[in-house]
């Protein structure tokens, strides 16, 4: 299962990348499942992100979504801190 992952603002700095194509070793159903899989496989910052996910927002295919929303192969998943524009 392939996903395009994007990080913005503080998360972009913590993970040291803004976007990456990710190939998952197994299917995941939701954005939350994706974080759990990454935290198990990659550890480190991913564990912090999974545990503190309520502090962050997720957008699926450029629409604000919730962690429980479904994700599918080929989706664009963006994770970022609360918005502070204007």
């Amino acid at each position: 299962m392939n996903l395009k992952l994007l990080f913005f603002a503080s998360l972009r700095e913590q993970f040291d990348f803004s976007q990456k194509e990710i190939t998952l070793t197994r299917e995941v159903g939701t954005a939350e499942d994706f974080l759990l899989l990454m935290s198990k496989q990659s550890g480190g910052e991913w564990i912090n992100l999974f545990e503190n996910k309520k502090m962050y927002k997720v957008a699926i295919n450029q629409e604000l979504s919730s962690w429980k929303d479904p994700i599918y192969a080929g989706d664009e998943l963006a994770i970022f801190p609360p918005i502070t524009g204007g």
């Binding site: 913005f8 957008a59 609360p82 918005i83 502070t84 524009g85 204007g86």
Partner: peptide, 12 residues
């Protein structure tokens, strides 16, 4: 402007 502040993805 109220919705821009919370829903449009900008970070300062």
């Amino acid at each position: 402007i109220d919705f821009l502040k919370t829903d449009a993805p900008f970070w300062k």
